[in-house]
Amino acid sequence: MTSSVPVGATSAPGSPLDWSEPLVPGEVVLDERVAPNASWSAVVRAGHVLTIVDVGGNQSGDCLIYNAADTEERYSVPDTLAWQGNAYVRTGTVLRSNLGNPLMTVVGNEIDRQDTIGGACSKESNTLRYGHHVMFHHGCRENFLSEGQKHGLGLRDLVSNLNWFMNVPVEADGALGIVDGMSAPGKRVAVRPDTDVLVLVSNCPQMNNPCNDFNPTPLRMIVVRP
């Protein structure tokens, strides 16, 4: 089909891809591929384990989590960070809700640290960061709105998020920013729900910073029953 719609970039031809496999063994109950620039959601049951595979390497997977039984309870960056007393997400990090309750726990992680400070990109914030000429670009906030509405969620429900495989250091003087990633094709993170959760993911389409190595690649989402 021919179209004049500027849908943005996608993987460079020949980009190395490693689809990998679940980080935690078990019976596979869901195994889906998320195309570059696309969104994804699923309810993941307590006790199951979700593996997210960074298939092409350094591909940010922006992620929001809700209590599946009551989406008013949702992932909270400040609660997650304050309870653990640390700004980064690593193996053992308990992903907490706005009530302070555990939603998911990071049970496996193949990169140094995961980000939850950098937030999601958006058409609107892109104008601040890069200029109004990129207003037409796709963004994670667009994906969260499209995917969230399938579950009755809207703008009021979008809060600060996780960014799997994205690298956001905080330097001694407080300087902070998205820099080159520490991941590689096939690297994984595994998260285990502490209660039934709704997980929203935006496969980040940003083409103005290194959050996806300037080369949007797929993600693989695998849920197992250990």
């Binding site: 400070i117 950098g118 914030s125 960061r129 300087a175 902070l176 998205i178």
Partner: peptide, 18 residues
Amino acid sequence: PVERLNVADTVKIPWQAY
């Protein structure tokens, strides 16, 4: 009021956490 404080953008866009 659907437009509200976004702490992530507040630290990311000025490149400064403090």
